[in-house]
């Protein structure tokens, strides 16, 4: 898929993956790259950006086998951001579908 398409919505996708359950980098990278074809590394700069914007916070949590994992948690600000992005995306996607005659 066109990488410009992805770039715009990846922030929203990462926020959505964190909605309801905290997760750690490897897991997020793995599930994101399974659904949308992209490099596993992509998720890390996005996570840092979201953290610096205050949409997610991080904490360390022991894992059963191995060193502690860095978990990401959606903040109330992040939830609001996600709700807004979601609404905008739906409206946009709907309008584009109509334009290109997508959904039958």
């Amino acid at each position: 898929m066109n990488s410009q398409f992805k770039k715009g919505v990846l922030d929203m996708c990462v926020l959505a993956m964190l909605d309801g359950n905290d997760s750690y980098g490897y897991d997020l990278a793995d599930s994101l790259s399974r659904k949308i074809q992209l490099a596993d590394g992509t998720v890390y700069p996005i996570l840092r950006k979201l953290a610096s914007e205050g949409y997610v916070t991080t904490y360390l949590k022991e894992s059963q086998n191995g060193p502690p994992r860095k978990y990401y948690h959606l903040t109330p600000d992040g939830k609001r951001k996600l709700a807004g992005d979601r609404k905008e995306w739906r409206e946009f996607a709907e309008a584009v579908d109509k334009l290109i005659g997508g959904i039958s």
């Binding site: 980098g25 890390y44 060193p67 860095k70």
Partner: peptide
């Protein structure tokens, strides 16, 4: 960043 990517390798 190094810690994050290093963790990714370990996982």
């Amino acid at each position: 960043i190094m810690a994050d990517i290093s963790e990714h390798f370990d996982e």
